[in-house]
Nucleic acid binder design. Structure first.
Length: 283
DNA sequence: GCCTTATGTTCAC
DNA sequence: TGAACCTAAGGCT
């Protein structure tokens, strides 16, 4: 599930091999030249920012990975079996081998190249438990809808379609509300909630869940939720199912090329704001 | 078993 | 705006 928490998990996995010599190859062939650059070098360690993963090698190489929608890591014992499918990169350590299949991006960068990637990314809510002041100042100016901004990696790095839908529902915010119309207090709460849910995601293996023991509760949620058992999300991928707060149908609509899920009753449009998808009737 | 769909981004038109 | 990337889970038969 490659939202930001998955990349943090991946970095943790890579770091179990930190300090070892890495034997880097390109079974699929598309990474051959780059693999030769770092093959045989010592692996220093891994870190992530948003949905981007960085692997550092001596003396000064960094492999930049973006999983995209399909990218997957496979952890294997050393010696590893024959590569399965299109393995872009295989890294053999003493006891473990890691295969990378189907990433959108896998490239070797120097320091300047890494900086160029980072310069394009907003702050990562997984790394900071409080929203940075510069971020809050910027949000106070943006006219674009909050549902679009949360997915914009240039503004805030690491949130994907699941967390977007869930945090907006849990805060009772319409995805169509302009970012600047959220108060600074609301932005702080939204950030803190995102930090909380994604941190849980780092610890929790398996799919994204926002309904779990000890999780923050959505605004307006009744003390007893009917039919909430076995539920992992409130609105994500629950189109037409009843909202846990009002019982009305959860809506789904393509929004800037991605499916948006929300409850039009519990995430009401403010007066004067038009739903660009045309689904929600403004009162 | 087959078909659809998806947690994402880049690039071509 | 749509295709490409390329994997795997889930729904269906």
């Amino acid at each position: 599930m490659p939202e930001g928490h998955s990349l943090k998990r991946a970095a943790n996995m890579w770091n179990r091999n930190a300090g070892q010599i890495a034997h880097v190859s390109s079974p699929q062939g598309r990474f051959a030249e780059s693999a030769a650059l770092v093959d045989g070098h010592r692996f220093r360690g891994a870190w992530s920012h948003g949905k981007h993963l960085f692997l550092e090698f001596e003396p000064d190489y960094t492999i930049h990975i973006h999983l995209g929608l399909y990218g997957k890591h496979h952890q294997l014992p050393t010696p590893a079996p024959e590569p399965k499918g299109a393995v872009r990169m295989r890294v053999r350590f003493k006891n473990r081998t890691i295969d990378l299949n189907g990433p959108t991006r896998c490239e070797v960068l120097d320091k300047a190249g890494v900086q160029t990637v980072l310069d394009r990314l907003g702050p990562d809510p997984l790394k900071l438990d409080e929203a940075p002041a510069a971020f809050l100042e910027r949000m106070a100016k943006l006219k674009a809808p909050v549902g679009k901004i949360l997915m914009d990696q240039n503004e805030i790095a690491g949130i994907g379609n699941v967390y977007r839908a869930e945090v907006l529902f849990m805060r009772g915010l319409s995805p169509f509300k302009p970012a600047k119309d959220l108060s600074t207090e609301e932005w702080k709460k939204l950030w803190a909630l995102t930090h909380e849910l994604m941190s849980h995601g780092v610890e929790h293996s398996g799919g994204i869940e926002t309904v779990y023991s000890g999780a923050p509760k959505p605004l307006g949620l009744p003390p007893v939720i009917k039919a909430a058992c076995a539920r992992r999300t409130y609105v994500y991928k629950r189109a037409t199912q009843p909202c846990v707060i009002c019982g009305g149908p959860v809506r789904a609509k393509d929004f800037y090329g991605r499916m948006l899920y929300w409850c039009p009753v519990d995430q009401p449009l403010p007066a004067g704001v038009v739903d660009p998808t045309g689904v929600t009737k403004s009162e």
